[in-house]
Every structure is written in structure tokens, then in C-alpha cells.
């Protein structure tokens, strides 16, 4: 008989989910959501809206790169070839590995394996730190070569590459100055990416602590899942940065 009433008034919250109100409030099912699925869907939707603003943010930087690379193509080619492909490729592999363990962490939370979740989160963090370590090494090399844009920028390797054993066409002094535009974008893009990773690592430490406390081993996986979305997004940004900054100028073609 209950069925008839519910079917006639499907929107009546009190009858539709009366049973739910006898439960203590669960973190995966707050009282203002009809079901756990609905709360989860709302959370995923909100996280993706945030990530879309991030796409627009990084998108602006990618667009600047596209435009300036066309304007100052020769300067971008030689400046880009200063970057180390082995270091960049290693970092790509490390970051993919970090994302892989983050994905496994989401799985561990879903199947409620607390020990595995903590382990995977720690591996994710360590790989993230390894990425930043290599990035630091690359930045340090640019610092030593005076390739940081600004008053102390040194164009000599671009004006007279053969004196430094670099197999590139020499640039005219005015075009050589434009290598600063490349390095500005290089530091802006990889720097913003690194900042996102630092924020992610701080969040990972907090999530690892909470996972260890057992917060995510009883069906409440939203923080792990949504952080996973963020971490994978940061991976994706790098998947584009690596070819654009490191790879596409090895054979300039035109």
C-alpha cells in the first residue's frame, strides 16, 4: 500500500526516503542529498567545474606559447633545444607513474583496503617529490647559465652557438633577445605546473594522514576520488608541456 502513495507523489522526500532519516549522518550521505549516488555525482560535477577553470587558466599560457612561438620562431627553436630531453622524458614517466598510483589509491579506497590506500598515497607523494627534484635540477642549470629572463640574461650561447659547441644557427642579436620570451613562458608554465604539484603534495600529506586514521575505508571515498581528478589534471597539463617545450623543435622543418 505504501507503494501506491510513493508512486503518486514521487517528489515527496519524506515518503521516498523515510528510512534514511533513521541513520546517523554519514559523510558520504549528508542529509540534503537524496542518495549517496546523488551526493557523489554532485561532488564529481563540482570538481569538474573547478577543473574547467583550470583548463582556461593553463589554456591562456598555452595560447601565449602558440602565438609567440610563431612570432619568434627561430629564437624559440634554439632556446627550446637547450632543454634536456632525457630529463623531460624521465619526468614524464615519473609523473605518469604518480598518476597510476593515485588511480590505484582510488581503487583501494573503493574496495576499503586501508593499508594499500596509505601505501599508494605515499608512493604518489614520493613520485611527485621526485618530479620536483628533477625540475629543481633543470631550473638550477638555467640559473647557472644565466638563462633566467631579466637584467642578467646571457644571450652569448644564442648569438655565437658554435663557440659553445652547440650545433645551431647563430641568431641576430635582436632575435637572440627574444629567447627571453621563450624562457619567460617556460618558467611561467612549468612554474605554475610545479606550484600545482606543491599544492597537490600538501593535500596528499593531509589525505595520507586521514587515510591512516581510517576516514576513507568505510565507503567515504569522495575526497580521494576528487583529489585524484586534480592530480590527473596536473598530469595532463604536463603531457602537453613536455612535447611543446622539449620536443617539437628538434627538427624545425620549415
Amino acid at each position: 500500500m505504501d507503494n501506491a502513495i510513493v508512486a503518486t507523489h514521487p517528489h515527496t522526500h519524506e515518503t521516498a526516503v523515510a528510512v534514511e532519516h533513521e541513520h546517523a549522518a554519514l559523510p558520504q550521505h549528508r542529509h540534503h542529498f537524496e542518495t549517496e549516488q546523488q551526493q557523489r555525482e554532485a561532488g564529481t560535477f563540482g570538481m569538474w567545474l573547478f577543473l574547467l577553470t583550470e583548463i582556461m587558466f593553463f589554456g591562456g599560457l598555452f595560447f601565449s606559447y602558440l602565438l609567440y612561438r610563431n612570432w619568434y620562431h627561430d629564437a624559440f627553436v634554439v632556446a627550446s633545444n637547450q632543454l634536456s630531453i632525457p630529463l623531460g622524458a624521465t619526468n614524464t614517466a615519473i609523473l605518469i607513474g604518480s598518476g597510476f598510483f593515485m588511480a590505484l589509491g582510488v581503487w583501494a579506497a573503493e574496495v576499503r583496503k586501508k593499508g594499500l590506500l596509505v601505501l599508494f598515497l605515499i608512493i604518489t607523494t614520493v613520485l611527485g617529490l621526485a618530479f620536483l627534484g628533477i625540475k629543481y635540477d633543470e631550473y638550477h642549470e638555467k640559473w647557472e647559465k644565466h638563462h633566467i629572463p631579466g637584467a642578467h640574461f646571457d644571450v652569448s650561447e644564442f648569438v655565437n652557438p658554435h663557440a659553445y659547441g652547440i650545433n645551431e644557427q647563430p641568431l641576430a642579436p635582436d632575435m637572440a633577445q627574444k629567447t627571453q620570451v621563450f624562457f619567460s613562458l617556460y618558467f611561467a608554465m612549468t612554474g605554475m605546473h610545479a606550484l600545482h604539484m606543491i599544492i597537490g603534495i600538501v593535500l596528499l600529506c593531509w589525505l595520507t594522514y586521514r587515510a591512516h586514521r581510517g576516514d576513507f575505508s568505510s565507503g567515504y571515498v569522495a575526497p580521494i576520488e576528487n583529489f585524484g581528478l586534480y592530480w590527473h589534471f596536473v598530469d595532463i597539463v604536463w603531457l602537453f608541456l613536455f612535447p611543446l617545450l622539449y620536443l617539437i623543435n628538434r627538427h624545425p622543418g620549415s
Binding site: 521516498a16 549516488q37 557523489r40
Partner: peptide, 20 residues
């Protein structure tokens, strides 16, 4: 849930756990 009018989960989006 008895949800004949399907207001709660109109897409039947069952939660899917991706395997390792």
C-alpha cells in the same frame, strides 16, 4: 529505494569501480 518515477537516479548511473 522505491523510486517508481525515477527521480533519484534518472540515468541509472551505477557506481563503477575501475579495476587495477
Amino acid at each position: 529505494y522505491h523510486d517508481a518515477a525515477n527521480v533519484v537516479n534518472p540515468e541509472h548511473a551505477d557506481h563503477h569501480i575501475v579495476t587495477p
